[in-house]
Design a protein around this nucleic acid. Sequence first.
DNA 1: TTAAAATAGTTGTCTAGCTAACTATTTTAA
DNA 2: TTAAAATAGTTAGCTAGACAACTATTTTAA
Lengths: 141, 141
Amino acid sequence: MINNNIYFQIELTARKIRRYGQNVLNSHGIDITIEQWLVLNVINENEYTNQIYVGEKLVKDKPTISRMVNHLEKKELIVKTTSAIDSRKVELSLSKKGKDLITNLYPIIENIRLTGLSKLSKNENESIETILKKIRENLGD
Amino acid sequence: MINNNIYFQIELTARKIRRYGQNVLNSHGIDITIEQWLVLNVINENEYTNQIYVGEKLVKDKPTISRMVNHLEKKELIVKTTSAIDSRKVELSLSKKGKDLITNLYPIIENIRLTGLSKLSKNENESIETILKKIRENLGD
DNA sequence: TTAAAATAGTTGTCTAGCTAACTATTTTAA
DNA sequence: TTAAAATAGTTAGCTAGACAACTATTTTAA
């Protein structure tokens, strides 16, 4: 039966998390997706980074990052400039609006995280990481 | 850091699984997506079921199922007829082509599953299920 | 020095997930 | 009996993931 399949449950849990997180953001009137938050966070931690770097951090491909960055730019949350040193590259930074948003977001995101992980023992917390990593490695890292 | 986040790892693992599985299907020249396989499988196990049922099994919403069913119909893998008893409902069944495909698919899918789960102890196998379920329940099942 | 290879990013095309709004039946309850 | 509510499915509009093919720079190696 499909529902007993671990793959199915991983995928299901991933969707559940995304949906839950998105609902929390929406309920706060925050007009970005969970995925866009991840991009904002990488840029916040690495000012003037480029799209390749963001993609490596989030393990997403170039077209996906390209489009997400455009969305964030359209929302005026980030600023995108061409690098003076290497004009193939783009330099990404947060706008004032983006910085303010991120400041507001951190506690909300932390809350989402804690909600999902409550009732998990320290041991469970550690072992799920190990197990997921093993699965990924089995599939060719 | 994002990459230590369990949510991120769950989502990453889900993507990894989907991509790996898709590549295996492609390498066998099988022209369906992993998600479409799940739908075929539900129909195979429940002949003349309807879209609501498929959606419940796979925890996907009506529009998603509607479109996937249309894709599978276009590929002539399933047959879709209106129920004589309740004309709101559709009756889904596998075509000959669909049945043949599923027969070929089962060992391939099983292989994908075993590849990812190799090196996992029985204990790890059980505990990941428990943990994922806890997370889903924490997020309001 | 210059042609080939590598790198950064974009565009196009497809599928899937999600929400909202819709049509068309069937069920229910006054 | 009939009007309201529930149910099944579709359509539209958006974002994201994946792949392929593309442009434009920069690096490299002959």
